[in-house]
Design a binder for these strands. Structure first.
Length: 494
RNA sequence: GGGUCGCUAGCUCAACGGCAGAGCAGGGGUCUCUUAAAUCCAAGGUUGUGGGUUCGAAUCCCACGCGACCCA
């Protein structure tokens, strides 16, 4: 069945193909060009909420969708029709259909049909369309999964998402909520005067983040290019160009391992606001998440992985270095000698690599001993400069930057800075990163002269924030894996 | 990259060294009020792939493929 060549020879497919050929032989088209629908399933249910049993409404409608199941009672058949809005029962009587009744009986689960008839309720009270006429809209050649259990094999659900969506209500719910979350964020930002923009996916320098890029090649230009790992530097160019508030919701690509929390391509929101700092970004980040939860779920009290969680603002605040100090019972300072930092890290059970400075070591200790302990959304504030090459120095704390991450359920949800806008300082940071890169750190930020040139024209004080949309959707749909919230997750070919 | 587990009919699952089975779907019947309809009959398999052990392998061993989870 999985081999395309032999699929048509499979008895279950061959039987359906034979029906197609029989229809054509009888002068009927199994894949007609169109069908006029008057109502969807959801519209009918909304229109006739609570009718008593055995009601004839006198309303003649036409509906269209996939026939999911039939219950054949001799000269009476009940069908379940599923369209994009929901399901509606078809009530099919031999008396009413005449010669065509046998043809209805010949339909298979999975076939697309259009049906016309009066809206009625059955003796049991089920809202139905009492079919007077029907037409096959598209023959399904492959059998549907089992009607009760549906498709449960995770690999098949992801590989054949179209089947997953048509038989699993949960899959449809997750897709719907993802769409609603993105719409909510877009609305929240548009309402605040942000402009939605699109920036290049193909980059000359894989900049704006610390990650390994995918490399591709431009034939005509004869040069390698990189799929973007972040949206940051082009959006900042737009702030230089005079935009006050911009955002982009776009796909970024990171050439790293696949895990329940990482897909090689994922969706990022990034936004930049002139004359704002990271405190403004914190307020905005809370608002975006709260508004999405309220619009999509109607509440900020959610359950994730079996545990309750409140998304209500204000969120807890935690000092980054302070949290590491508390968790390890040792004093930490980004200015402390690397030797000492290394010793304390080892004491905390963290392995240290040679090119790392104190800031990077603190970051590793944070991820190892603090991050997993955070459940409800928490701002972790003031990151070491070494691991924050695009964030401005903290206005009062040496060695630190004005940067926070939002950690939820042990995962990074968002990352924001008061942006570094001093081009000379930015150049110095890039040079430091380039040195780390030369020393073997493949995820250090590369030099980006083109961006520096933009900064040299003057970027106003700016706040910026990036958020992982997939992770937000995971939270709001209570899904443990990113593969459940990405419609078509990465899989090796069969 | 390492470890553990999984892969049997279209789908959901049994059988765990001794004749590969069931339910649903599909085929043929009965039934005008079903909601996973009920019911009778018949059919459906290279047990992920390739080796090996054995009188005998879905089952034990090895390799490979794909996936899940954990670790790096």
């Amino acid at each position: 069945m999985t081999e395309d060549q032999s699929a048509y020879e499979h008895p279950l497919v061959a039987a359906r193909l034979a029906k197609v050929e029989a229809m054509r032989a009888a002068g009927e088209e199994p894949y007609p060009v169109n069908f006029e629908r008057t109502d969807t399933a959801a519209q009918l249910h909304a229109m006739y909420g609570e009718l008593p049993p055995s009601t004839d409404t006198g309303n003649r409608v036409s509906v269209a969708g996939r026939l999911m199941n039939t219950r054949d009672i001799g000269s009476l058949v009940f069908g379940v029709l599923q369209d994009g809005s929901g399901q509606i029962q078809l009530f099919v009587e031999a008396d009413r259909l005449g010669d065509r009744f046998a043809d209805f009986d010949d339909l298979d689960p999975g076939d697309w049909i259009g049906a016309e008839g009066e809206v009625v309720t059955t003796k049991r009270g089920e809202l139905s369309v009492r079919v007077e006429r029907f037409v096959l809209l598209a023959k399904g050649l492959r059998p549907l999964p089992e009607k009760w259990h549906g498709l449960t094999d995770v690999e098949k659900r992801h590989r054949y998402r179209h089947v997953d969506l048509l038989v699993n209500e949960d899959a449809r719910m997750v897709m719907r909520r993802r769409v609603d979350v993105v719409q909510s964020i877009r609305k929240s930002l548009l309402d605040r005067g942000y402009l939605e923009v699109e920036t290049p996916v193909l980059h000359h320098v894989p900049s704006g983040g610390l990650a390994t890029p995918f490399v591709t090649h431009h034939d005509a230009l004869g040069m390698d290019m990189f799929l973007r790992i972040a949206l940051e530097l082009h959006l900042k160019r737009l702030i230089v160009g005079g935009a006050d508030r911009v955002f982009e919701i776009g796909r970024v690509f990171r050439n790293e391992g696949v895990s329940p929390r990482h897909n090689p391509e994922f969706t990022m929101l990034e936004l930049y606001e002139a004359l704002a700092d990271y405190e403004d970004m914190a307020t905005l980040t809370e608002a975006l998440v709260v508004e999405a939860a309220e619009r999509v779920l109607g509440t900020t009290d959610i359950t994730y992985d079996g545990r309750p969680m409140s998304l209500k603002a204000p969120w807890r605040r935690l000092d980054y270095v302070g949290a590491v100090a508390e968790a390890t019972g040792a004093d930490w300072d980004p200015a402390m000698p690397i030797k000492e930092a290394r010793k304390q890290a080892v004491a905390a059970g963290v392995e240290v690599e040679d090119p790392w400075g104190t800031g990077r070591i603190i970051a590793e200790v944070f991820e190892s001993v603090v991050q997993d302990t955070i459940w409800e959304p928490t701002f972790v504030l003031d990151f070491p400069e070494e691991i924050s090459p695009l964030a401005r120095r903290h206005r009062s704390r040496p060695g630190l930057t004005e940067r926070f991450e939002v950690i939820v359920a042990g995962n990074e949800l968002a990352n924001a800075f008061s942006e570094l806008n001093d081009p000379v300082e930015q150049r110095r940071r890039f040079e430091t990163q380039a040195a780390a890169r030369a020393a073997g750190d493949h995820e250090a930020h590369p030099m980006d002269e083109d961006f520096l040139r933009a900064l040299e024209y003057g970027m106003p004080p700016t706040g910026g924030m990036g958020m992982g949309i997939d992770r937000l959707v995971m939270l709001l749909t209570d899904q443990p894996s990113i593969r459940e919230v990405v419609l078509f997750p990465h899989l090796r070919p069969e």
